[in-house]
Design a protein around this nucleic acid. Structure first.
Lengths: 217, 217
DNA sequence: TAAGTGTTTGACCTTTTGGTCAGTAAAGTT
DNA sequence: AACTTTACTGACCAAAAGGTCAAACACTTA
């Protein structure tokens, strides 16, 4: 890492300020969208002059790209190292569970992605093509192997994956609607379990599996 | 209707122009969002001077509200007249099917709603409170009656409804992602059937039901 | 400590934004 | 035809947008 070559004061403050700006930008972009967020709002939120932002990130587009890149870097698509030998019920249950936890506890990033995709994914296109698509292809192959081995029902693996994504992300992206309809102000601790249970029940049983007994950890 | 009291030339052209503007605005708002759409873009798209839009609709907010109101007026939440006596498999299968058809064939309105909700639903709040919430309550009661009558599994009715909404709307709202991941340019005719089949299989079986035999019409 | 390097920022610029308004055109009414 | 009312629009406006720039600043190094 070149970050380690010169740990002098300049670099430290630069990284600190950049982080300050990116944090503010991430929050605003995910709440108000790209067009709804102005550079001066980011400046005010980050507590730095507007020109400083333009110094680090050449343009609003540049800032937005950096925000997205940073999220992607921390973004784990999950389902790592799944193989046809794994138990589908166990794997999928924990995948669903982790997605629900993520959706309820950190909805901002999910919403930023959502508003990007709604607009036709101008900045995420490349990411989807070069990362998500191969990732999906691999998981889909495993799903298909499970199906061929009669471990689960013959359901189109792509649509199974979309079903898991949609049902879990819904609680992040459409939080406002969910809470309004359920007449709540925010999710509480029981909700995560309740949501996980409902989704896991439907999807797992829906493809001929059972929810694992020892459903903890 | 007061529309019928004076069918003179003035009223006709007014309605015509308003429709022209609302059509353009609906398209742009759903593609670019509220902040991404400017009044001059709407004017250009509709082929009328900008000031004309401001004449009919007092402000950008007013225009946006009218667009949303018009969509809501044509918006059918479906599941009309469901009763505990109905067959859940039949009812839910056709509900899912109609939602998928809607998502694939007319994604614009779904996306407009989605971007509204992403922003915290500033304009839809009232609609959700006064319309959707009671509607949901009623359907949830029917679902619960089905559960109590052992017609289907004991799954939280709210989350069942969210599951149906999320899985079907996903193909409209996140169309860009779905197509990129599946490496397609657009949905084709077989997709509607394929999507409906996959979702219906998972959800219906997932709550202990079977897809109706004569699955046509 | 002085030169060199990267950092910071107030002032400024252009373009676009949502919105106003006074004046004109086109009905409808008598 | 004369008059009233409604529909329409080009010209204009203040505010906010994204972005530039030159001068000031701060740290590192010779």
């Amino acid at each position: 890492m070149s970050t380690q070559t010169k740990p002098n004061k300049k670099e430290l403050t630069r990284v600190k300020n950049q982080t300050l700006i990116l944090d503010a930008a991430e929050q605003l972009f995910s709440q108000l969208g790209y067009d709804g967020t102005s550079m001066s709002m980011v400046a005010k939120e980050a507590g730095v002059p507007k020109a400083n932002i333009l110094y680090y990130f050449k343009s609003k587009d540049g800032l937005y790209e950096n925000v997205i890149d940073r999220i992607i870097a921390h973004w784990n698509l999950g389902l790592d190292n799944v193989t046809p030998e794994d138990d589908p019920a166990h794997v999928l249950y924990h995948y669903i569970k982790s997605k629900v936890i993520l959706a309820v506890s950190q909805p901002l990033q999910s919403r930023l992605f959502a508003s990007e995709i709604l607009r036709g994914a101008p900045y995420l296109q490349n990411y989807f093509r070069t990362n998500t698509r191969p990732w999906v292809k691999q998981k889909v192959d495993v799903f298909q192997a499970w199906i061929d081995a009669n471990k689960m029902d013959n359901v189109d693996p792509y649509h199974l994956l979309f079903t898991i994504w949609s049902t879990t992300q819904y609680y992040a992206d459409f939080q406002a609607e969910v809470l309004l309809v359920m007449n709540k102000l925010e999710y509480d601790e029981t909700d995560v379990a309740q949501i996980t249970q409902s989704i896991a029940h439907i999807i797992l049983k829906g493809i001929g599996l059972k929810i694992p007994e020892h459903s903890e950890a």
